[in-house]
Design a protein around this nucleic acid. Structure first.
Length: 514
RNA sequence: GGCGGAGUAGCUCAGUCGGUAGAGCAACGGAAUCAUAAUCCGUGGGUCGGGGGUUCGAGUCCCUCCUCCGCUACCA
């Protein structure tokens, strides 16, 4: 496969101290949809996710749990790999920062930076609050106390620093020359504004804890989060072996998908590290927004954290995937509410899409001898509907290239709407009595339209889309985008099984179907 | 404080180069009956945050005021 055909997408690595929640699932889901889309489009995809397992918090949590750090992270990391399985994510690899491949990678990157005089030994100083276990800057302090009201003390410890300040101009130049490097636009503005405000060197090691990657040649230090965590993206493709086939094929990454809270690390520190090591920066960093729960900010103290697995159990996997990617423009914040979820699930999936498939395939089953009907000459309305279906691929390519999942879904649903209107206008149930040949043409056009819709819906709702293609007797090997268009059209005469609903309605408890 | 974004129909939002406001959902009325009581059609007099200005004409440009949100360095 050529480099141009490769597509490398990453989720952040998730901090094992956190319990998996909707935020983690959301980021990985977006990656998964993108990865699936690109695979179906014939690209060679690598989708990487994983866990971040070092740091003082982990060291302390392990100690509090009476466990060795390594045993602790084994257990905690598994919760994230399990979430990936439960959500049906198709990541090609799962990286853990405690793996030997990563330790070797990070130490090598460190040496590369040090060899280029990008790292120097200095003193990290700041106001430390023992109670908060956190450092504060001068500007953070309120009346000489931490913002939390905790007492602070001036602490100094030796630390290695990365010469981030030296990269300000080259970063700004990079943003300028690569307008798509940071998305969405508003986040890009924020990052540029931040960098223009001036960069100071970055403390990249600690001596206050041991649970981290040792700094080469100075065992008193372990690496602080930045270099350790971000480097996972190149570890995943074989670094430090830059001759590795995966590195050659996949680096630089096509897109790092991240939450807006960690954009700066990805859009400022990470490209600076890479450029300083004379490695190419990623092509794009996309920061998505946060979800609220029934209009309220999600927080541990409110106890309203959303468990993605519970959502899937209640509404279904396809339904949750569809909702999260349709409800809000990717990049914006959004609100999760039961009402909105049910509306998407019932109105969009069950009524519009599911019912379209059901009504068409039922007529085929009953009136066409349960076989793909033989079409006659096409009329304008037929050509128009098919043209809309055929145009979808290019439209969705544009949307997915921009991570604009909701516009992709809007396009799909425009054709679903057009197909439903076409059914009503053509009234094949009436044609069954007056003009069966015309009915067969109409149903064929609809079946072929549905094939396009299902093939293209696979990245978002892989379960239901797959069942639709099953019902159309489309071979597993003929479900890629290469099969779209007239050349891959359904073959008249192909026997079809009796249709079954693919997107069930949500029925409120106690309100059984009437 | 500085920088950036936003305030448009009950709700969520579109509105390109300025030309007398649109979509989805909800609501109401109708058609149809193939289908997961699903579908289709019709119905929107909302000071486009307030005020002022430019213009033949402004959500759409300029000024000003109000409100909300994001970023403003080491919280993955």
């Amino acid at each position: 496969m050529s480099r141009a055909n490769a597509y490398y997408i990453t989720s952040p690595i998730y901090y094992v101290n956190d319990a998996p929640h909707i935020g983690h699932a959301y980021t990985s889901l977006a990656c998964d949809a993108l990865a699936r889309f690109m695979r179906l489009d014939g690209r060679e995809v690598k989708f990487l996710t994983g866990t971040d397992e070092h740091g003082q918090k982990v060291e302390k949590a392990a100690s509090a749990a009476g466990e060795a750090p390594q045993a602790f992270v084994e257990r905690m990391s598994r919760r994230f790999s399990r979430l990936s399985d439960q959500m049906g994510f198709t990541n090609d690899d799962f990286i853990r920062t405690t793996e030997q491949r990563h330790v070797a990678s990070v130490q090598r990157l460190w040496r590369e930076l040090a060899a280029r005089d990008q790292i120097y030994l200095g003193v990290y100083a700041g106001w430390y609050s023992v109670r908060d276990e956190a450092f504060y800057t001068e500007s953070d302090l309120v009346d000489g106390m931490a913002p939390t009201g905790a007492p602070v003390e001036w602490v100094e410890e030796p630390s290695y620093f990365f010469r981030l300040s030296a990269w300000q101009d080259r970063l700004l130049e990079h943003y300028e020359n690569n307008p798509d490097f940071i998305a969405p636009e508003t986040r890009r503005n924020e990052v540029i504004s931040f960098v223009k405000g001036g960069l100071v060197d970055l403390s990249v090691s600690r001596t206050s804890f041991r649970w981290g990657v040792p700094v080469p040649d100075d065992p008193d230090h372990v690496m602080y989060v930045w270099i350790d965590a971000l480097t996972n993206y190149i570890t995943g493709v074989g670094y430090p072996d830059t001759a590795h086939p995966e590195y050659r094929r996949f680096w630089p990454a096509d897109v790092h998908l991240v939450g807006k809270d960690i954009l700066r690390f990805h859009a400022v520190y990470w490209p600076a590290f890479l450029m300083a090591a004379e490695l190419p920066p990623p092509k794009r960093v996309f920061a998505h927004g946060w979800w609220t729960n029934e209009g309220r900010k999600i927080s541990k103290s409110l106890g309203n954290i959303i468990d993605p697995v519970a959502l899937v159990e209640r509404y279904g996997l396809d339904q949750v995937r569809y909702f999260l990617l349709r409800e809000v423009p990717f990049g914006n914040d959004g609100d999760f509410s039961h009402r909105a979820m049910v509306s998407r699930m019932n109105d969009d999936l069950a009524n519009d899409f599911g019912n379209l498939v059901q009504r068409v395939l039922s007529m085929v089953n009953r009136n066409c001898d349960a076989r793909v009907p033989e079409p006659g000459a096409l009329e304008d309305a037929d050509e128009k509907l098919l043209a809309a279906a055929h145009a979808l691929l290019d439209e969705l390519r544009d949307s997915f290239a921009r991570q604009s999942f909701h516009t992709a879904l809007i396009r799909l649903w425009e054709v679903i709407g057009a197909a439903n209107r076409y059914v009503d206008e053509q009234a094949p149930w009436a044609l069954n009595k007056t003009d069966p040949a015309r009915m067969r043409t109409v149903l064929y056009v609809l079946a072929e339209t549905i094939r396009h819709l299902a093939v293209l819906a696979q990245p978002i709702t892989p379960g239901g889309a797959g069942r639709i293609l099953d019902q159309l007797a489309v071979d597993e090997g003929a479900r890629g985008f290469a099969s779209l268009g007239p050349d891959g059209a359904l073959v008249p005469g192909t026997p079809l099984a009796k249709p079954e609903g693919v997107f069930p309605r949500y029925v409120e408890a106690g309100q059984g179907a009437r």
